[in-house]
Every structure is written in structure tokens, then in C-alpha cells.
Write a protein that binds this DNA or RNA. Sequence first.
DNA 1: AGCACGCCGACT
DNA 2: GTCGGCGTGCTC
Length: 808
Amino acid sequence: MAELVQVIVDVPTMQTNRPYTYRVPEHLERQVQPGMRVMVPFGRGSREVQGFVVAVDQPGEFDGDLKDLAGVMDLSPVLNDELLKLAGWLADQTYAFKITAFYTMLPSLLKAQTTRLVRLVDEVDEVDEQTRLALFADQDELDLAKVQTDPLALSQLMRLRRAGKVVIDYRVHDRARAKQITTITPTLSFDDYEGERLGVLKNAHAQRNLLDYLQSLAGKTVPLKQAQEESGLSAATFTTGAKRGWLKKGQAEVYRDPSGALPTSPTAPLTLNQEQAQAVKRINQATDQRTAETFLLQGVTGSGKTEVYLRAIERALANGRSALMLVPEISLTPQIVSRVRGRFGKQVAVLHSGLSNGERYDEWRRIKRGEAKVVVGARSAVFAPLDNVGLIIMDEEHESSYKQDDAPRYHARDVAKWRAAYHHAPLVLGSATPSLESRARAATGLYHRLTLLHRVNQRPLPPIQVVDMKREVQARGETNYSLPLLNLLTDRLNKGQQSILMLNRRGFSSFVMCRDCGYVPKCPNCDISLTLHMDSRSLKCHYCGHEERIPNTCPNCQGHRIRYYGTGTEKAVAELQTYLPTARIIRMDVDTTRRKGMHEKLLTKFGNHEADILLGTQMIAKGLDFPGVTLVGVLNADTGLDLPDFRSSERTFDLLAQVAGRAGRADEAGQVVIQTFNPDNYVIQLARAHDYERFFVQEMNLRKLGAYPPYYYTVRVMGSHPDEQMAARVMQAVRQELVGQLDSQTIILGPTPRAIARLKNRYYYQIVIKYRHDPALHARLTAIMEGAQQQFDRETQVMIDPDPQYFL
DNA sequence: AGCACGCCGACT
DNA sequence: GTCGGCGTGCTC
């Protein structure tokens, strides 16, 4: 019988980042288990918070007065033993709070909402009637959150509270609800319905039809909605039926169905070529033998990696185990989902960002109950509550979206490795352009490398033509389109074939600049240039959301020549339309796809050949498969090449390889055009040659010279404060705590102000640490996180980002 | 996070 | 003299 429990409470601060001990009242003794959510009183007053039970019946060190658990929120644990352990590891590795780790692993509905209600105590006569009316109107309770923004009301309430005239109640409410639907069940026998029919008036058609319908059900319970559709009768008719005792209404719990009515016709496995068969064989061996081996499946675009995944999943299932397949959000398209569903049917659960909170919760429950054995999802799906995992797949493993860029700053690849080791399951990392880290590990034998060099359709990779834009611009003036590209576009248009054009906007966006004095409007809070949004005719800050009107005159020199800079897709489309007046062009960028579902809608439209050219940003590069596309153009390949980021070459190479793979997926041969101002750059040249391996070798040399990953590991320590001096001082102190304490090969860079030094009125300074092997570092950094609050004032924030994707 | 405690300025 | 500002410490 549990008498004591250890609870991690939902108060995300360093000081409370440890278990608190609670007594278990008798009536809860039988219920409470580790991994369950509970409600506990915390702090003075009547405050109640949600928490997670991490241990039962282990007496804590605390010897003060214990409080009682207020309630248990779950019937069975939401976190099993594996996930509890994983959360501990995750928090430790990413320097995050334990509570943050728990919530990251669970659907958001399991985070209870707390409301604070202000209630008047009985003797109101003492309270000024005017005040009472102003604040409470005729209610006796008031949601504090609604008043929070009104400083006057807030201070009045606080005064009343001090005087004991009002109290604040805390209510924790669980938002996790199973969806309920109404059902109907016939209550009479076939013959009895015949009897009822005699008692119904001849012209009561609806009722007669209802009797017919109920008869046809033969006692079966059906959802009311379905009954209405099948019978064509109204809800009111069924209500009348219930009153007459012909049927019974009931409630049933259902899963919200995120797949919609998507027909998933079963698809047969494709025939494997020899390379694929070899890869499948090796992976399946590991699955059978339960070895937690990591494979790097390196296959050119179109080499049939997905089929390898599906075969490997099949084997895991055949062994009675489950499988997890991670894909980047952007390639979690209906195409890939229907392919997995087609093979494994209802055993598949899909987790993607398009799900509502309720749908996500339901998919999570299906997985947890063991009804779904295959999970396909983006980054956070790596925490799917699967039991007995037999295989983990991570497609496009080089994608930077696998790294979460707020706390906990985990990389899904590391979590996948942890879980694979826990379950003794193989992990398959798939990519055409692996991350240098993974490719290097395959080179040392840490990962087992599997290669797919041939495309399944036997077609060669499309030829890539590199066009020097310096010459084009010299000859024809400022333009986004070279003659070779225009000629090919015209040719495709004449043949009725489709083209895709990509505008590389990495590290680059359109902004407004004064042509007289060079003034660029900046965000008053964040010190970064405001981006131009033509749809709302405004300037917006991408970081804090600040918005202002486009100025007519320059605020700096009062000049009138304030113009737009940078090439947006909008401008690129307009220019293209002047060259090709008859072409039907679809523009795809953040602006045209902001509304939910627009992304798919535009792609479907293009897929149906309702347009000739798809012009968009990076988002068009991934995972699209349009057989009709025979020309792919990259308008500005080098944007992003010169960013002060050691990974910019790698990302550019990946991007070019990705888009090149979009051409000629089907029968027609494809052609790729890359426009660039740096035609001789090695990234461009090796992308043109489709030569990842040489790129790998060359880039590794540069990384070695610069002491960058994968030769060195990196950690970024960021400190922020509303006062710039303080931010700098904090990071200076952090540096002092590290200097002399670390390995002799470890390099400490900074502190330096971050590229975006001010965000939301806070100043940021950072230190980057590069190290090869430094056993003392982790403990040092943990100590810095723990000490930061005590050492500095409350406004100080210290964040640690292990293995950052960007240093900017 | 949210609350109490405690120590300094402008009001009855 | 007190009311109330926000810096600091603590929450089983």
C-alpha cells in the first residue's frame, strides 16, 4: 500500500526541479502508481498544481510536515517505466526541467489547465458596493485571468484580498476527454415493430420510416449520426422514437478520426532490387537477433528507401513487435501516409502537426492501448508510447527539424538511439545526403552503412546545368531568370509539361530600405530588420510579432525613395509572368500557405495539372513526387552559402540534391537548372555532379580545419537579461566558471552578443564551447544552470543548447 | 509560477 | 507614522 509518493510538480523553475514528498490519503492508496498525474497542494495558501508521480513508497529526505495528495488524475499511468526513465535522461542531457521533459513526451491535452477564480467572502457589506459592481458585476466569481490585463482592477482585487474580503480558488482541470457520441439501439423485436406500425397514423411518414429502419437494424446499436444518414430521418424523429419506447439512446466513446475518409486501399509490396533486398536482409537480421545496431541507409533520391522501410516494419510486426517511423514534418505528406496505411492498415497511427489536440490525444491513446503498432510521425513522435519496439526508422535523418529549438533542446536522433538501445531494436537512419555526423560514424564503423546507388526506375539522375548569373545580369540587367532557364521553361510550356522553380530564401527575406540614406526599419523590441508583408501592407517582426505600417518617407532622412529590397516569391512570379504571359503559375511560400490546408490544396492543384509552374521557397523541395515535372530550376542557389554558419555549405548541398531529385521521377527524363553567382563554388560543382561522397570528403576537411562537428562537439550557453550590461556580465561570469575547469583541448568562444542581440526586449550573449572528450563539462554546465538563479537576479535567464543547429 | 516576507519612498 | 512599491526566498 502506497503511503508516500515522490512528485515532480508543474512549476518549471530550477529551484523546484526535484521530487516533493506527499502523503497518500487512505482512499487513494490503491490507485496511485508511478507515471500517473496527480494534483497536489503546493506552496502557501490553497494553491493546487498538477504533478507527476515518479516514485512510490520511497521515503524522501524531507523531514518537515508532509501534505496530502489532493487527487489522482489518471486510472492508469500515462508514463510507463521506460518513458519515466527516458524523461530523466532527457532532462539531464538537455539541461531542461523534469516537468518540461514530461510534458514534451505527452499530448498537450494532458497538461491540465489551472484557473484562478476570485470569490467574494460572505460579508460583502464591508466592501464598497461600487467596487464590487465594477469588478464582479452581478457574478459572485471572477476569472482572474480575465482581469490580469487590467492593472487597476488587479490592484483593487489585491487590496480586497489583503483585507480578507475575497479569496482565490485554484481549480486544476484535466482537459483530456474522450469524445462521446450519441447512439441509438432498437428496443423491440421485429414482430413488435409490426405491431407498433398499426398504431401509427397513416400520414405519419417519418414515423413509419423510422419503424422500418429500426426493424432493419435487427437489434444493432449504431451512432445516431449514421442512423440519420442511412434513414434520411431527422434527429427529432429519433427523439420521438425514444419517447415512444421504440429505441434507446446511449453514449459511446469514439476516437476522433484524423484520417478523415481517406480511402486506404491495400497496396502490395513492390519488388525489391538487389540493393534493396540486401539492405532489408541486414536490417531484418538485426531485428530478429534483437541487436540495437544503427544503420545508415544511404540512397539517392528515387532509390526506393521507403520500400526498404516498409519491409523492415513488416518483419518487426511479424516478430510481434511494434515499429516507429520518423519523418520530417514537411514530408509527412498524404502521399507517404497513404503508402504506410496502404500496407499496414488500421495498425498505423499518424502524428503530425495538422491534428487537433483532441485527435492527437486519441492517436496517442490508440498507441498506448496497443491498437496501433506502427507509428508514423514527426519529431515528437519519437516519444510515442509504444511497447516492445522492434524497429525505429528515421527518414531524412540530416533534417535540422529533428532538433527542437526550445527546451528541452533534444535531437530526435539521440532519443531514437536511446529507445533503440532500451528495446534492443535496430535504428535505421535514411538519407540521400546524410548529416556529416552520421556519415562519419558510418566511416568509423560505429554505424553500419547500407547503400542504394541505383534508382528503382533505372533512370539516371537528371542532368544539372549551372548558369552563371553574373554574366546574365551583366548582359541583360537585373533579373531572376537566365536565358537558358527561360528557354527551357518555354519549351516545357509548349510541350504541356510542368516545371518547379525554387527560390532559396534561407537567411534572407525581403525588407524595406531607403535608397538615399540606406536606412532599414528595425523592430523596436528586437533589433532586427522588419520583413515586408504585402498582403497586409505592413512590416512585421518575425520574432516578436511587432507590426507597423510601411513608411512613405524615410524616418531617418525624410527622403521619399524608400523601396523594397530582396526578392520575394511574389516579385519572382510577377517577373516570370511578364516573360511567360500564358503560363499558369502557383506561388507557394509562407504567405500563401499560412491558412490551414492551403499547402495541400496548392499541391493537389499542381498535381492535377491545373498549373504549369510551381514557384516556391524551400518547402517545395521536400518529398514531393509529381510525375509530370520534367524541369526543376533553382533561381538563386547561393543565398545561404555565405552565411556565418559552419553548416551553410552542408545545408545548401542538401537542398540542391533534394530539388534535383524532383525532376523526372517518372517516364519523362528530367532536367535541372541551377542559377548562381558562384558557379565555381565546390558546393555547386559537387551538387551538379550528384557527388555526395566527394562533398563529404571535402567538407570534412574544412570541418577539421575549423574544429567543427563532427570533429568536435559543440554546446552553446546563452544568457539573457533586459539590461545589456547585465547580460554581458552574466556570461562573463559563466566563462569564469568554466575556464581552467575543462579539458585542455576544449575551446571556449565568447561571450559575444548574439547575431540577434535583442529579442523581446531582452539582450542575448552567448558562449560556444567546442570539445572532443570532456568528462567534466556536463556536470559543470548543470551546476551553472542550477546556480544561475541564486547567483544573479531574477531577470537573468541562462539556457544551454547542446549540439546547436545554428550558431546565429 | 505565485505567494509571503521584508525593507525603503510618498501619502493620510 | 502607514500603505504599498518590488527584491528575495521558499514551496513537500
